[in-house]
């Protein structure tokens, strides 16, 4: 990557920031909402669901295995 292409990339970045910054400043509450935090809450909610449901199944499986291991001993 030479100095010329680096300068070109930097100028594109500066131009994007120059256009985007005032636009973001004018954003409504609803527009700003899509910029991060709601996504974090949304993914956290779905992660909780997956962890709770998977945890429930794993917990039942473990407890069932313990009892099933004991049953032949008690039978014998």
């Amino acid at each position: 990557m030479n100095a010329r292409s680096l300068a070109r990339m930097a100028s594109v970045l500066l131009l994007t920031l120059a256009v985007a910054t005032p636009v973001l400043g004018q954003a409504t509450e609803l527009g700003r909402q899509t910029l991060g935090r709601p996504y974090w809450h949304f993914f956290a909610a779905y992660a909780i669901v997956v962890v709770m449901l998977a945890g429930w199944i794993v917990s039942i499986g473990r407890r069932l295995k313990v009892v099933e291991r004991r049953l032949p001993e008690l039978d014998g």
């Binding site: 449901l53 407890r63 069932l64 009892v67 049953l71 008690l74 039978d75």
Partner: peptide, 23 residues
């Protein structure tokens, strides 16, 4: 999903009851 896992949990209770009976 609830009914499927509840049935698995019911099997666990039945196995526990059998173990208590044998004990």
């Amino acid at each position: 999903f609830f009914f499927g896992v509840m049935m698995l949990r019911y099997q666990l209770e039945c196995a526990r009851a059998r173990a208590e009976l044998l004990e």
